[in-house]
Amino acid sequence: MTTIQQFNELHASPELLFIGNAWDLLSALTLEKAGFKAIGTTSWGIANSLGYVDGELIDFNRHLAIIKTMADNINIPVSADIEAGYGSDTKTIVENVLRIADVGVAGINIEDSLKNQQGLRTLREHCDILTHLRTALEHRGYKDFYINARTDTYFHEEQPFLETLNRAKAYVESGASGIFIPGMTDHQEIRELTLTVDVPINLMSLPGLTNCTILKELGVKRFSFGNALSDSIIAYLTKHARRLMDTRDTSFLYEE
């Protein structure tokens, strides 16, 4: 079984897929060892680990190399967060996704946010990208490569639900394997969406939206924590680095 097939089966399982978000090889290996069944990279975490903020500021080749290192060294599927595709035109985005598929990942997250200005791509523009991606991947031999279409309506719209529902249906028709909606937290809206959209729905952890069992009952098929773990690790490192300098004593490093 290929990693792409394995990844698709995880989404088809009766169990919710709790995916671990990694930002380097160490974090990916640690999450694998802890028992996670798949890894999703976090672009925010990768950017922070290299001294950048999120937003496609890293050279794409450098980002690709980090993704490849994870895919080469762990034994569970890897899905790559590629933000909006690292390109201003469909051709470049398609080429980038094919390069990502070639390093052995099982899927991608691709979002509809614009990077050089505020707002979202138009529905037609993003559907066109998804259609070209699916066609190019099929021609390259990547049947059922997992395209997790992320919509950022909850970050940009005052009343996002109907626009989210409209975009989700259109993205599925354009070739998306699943729909990712960060920022969505209302249980009634989540339930309505999972009953209406006939592909796996992926939500992201936020305060008040943390429990896999509850989300499974609402029909959610995939749950991720984005940059929350990497942010927590950075906060821990910052706190203890300051403590080392303040106390000039390393004894606390050996406390359990």
Rank of each mutant, 00 (worst) to 15 (best):
E15G: 07
L195H: 15
L98Y: 14
D128W: 02
A235C: 02
I100C: 10
L229N: 00
F60T: 04
R222H: 06
F145M: 08
I19W: 09
E157V: 13
D54Y: 03
T250S: 11
T153P: 04
H11A: 10
A149D: 08
K91W: 00
A106M: 07
L130Y: 02
A34V: 06
H187G: 00
N116R: 12
I19G: 07
V197T: 12
E189W: 01
S224Q: 03
A71K: 09
L123W: 08
F161E: 07
E157W: 05
D89P: 02
G104S: 09
R121E: 13
A65P: 00
D231A: 09
T151I: 13
G51T: 12
S88N: 14
N227K: 04
E157A: 14
L50Y: 08
T2G: 07
K169D: 08
N148H: 08
L16V: 11
T30Q: 10
R99T: 14
L206E: 15
L114N: 13
A80D: 03
G119N: 12
D102G: 07
L16Y: 07
I66G: 01
E125H: 10
Y254T: 05
A34P: 00
H156K: 12
E158Y: 08
I147Q: 06
N21E: 10
N21L: 09
R242D: 14
M245H: 10
T250K: 14
D112E: 07
T250W: 05
D24C: 11
V53G: 06
M204D: 05
V199K: 12
E255P: 00
L218G: 07
E192K: 14
V78L: 12
V94K: 13
E217A: 13
H132E: 11
V97D: 03
I76A: 11
D152E: 15
E157P: 00
K239G: 01
K37H: 06
S43A: 10
L193K: 11
I82L: 02
R243W: 01
K33Y: 06
T131N: 07
G40D: 09
A65I: 01
R248I: 12
E56W: 04
L253I: 09
G175H: 06
R99P: 04
T151M: 06
I179H: 00
I39H: 03
L114V: 12
N21Y: 08
E125S: 13
G219A: 10
Y236V: 02
G85E: 04
Y254R: 09
T250G: 00
F18A: 15
T131A: 09
S27H: 03
E189A: 12
D24P: 04
L165D: 03
T164Y: 07
R140K: 15
V97T: 15
F223P: 03
I67A: 01
L229F: 05
I46A: 02
D81P: 01
E9Y: 11
D246R: 09
R124D: 14
W23E: 13
L26P: 02
G107Q: 06
A22C: 10
A34F: 05
S205Y: 13
S177Q: 04
S224D: 02
A101E: 07
L206Y: 08
C212V: 12
S230H: 05
R242P: 00
V199T: 15
G45H: 04
T164C: 15
I201D: 04
S13M: 09
A12V: 03
F18N: 14
L16F: 06
I201M: 06
I147L: 15
G183Q: 03
R121T: 12
G45F: 05
K115L: 13
F161A: 05
D198Q: 15
I19T: 10
E9C: 11
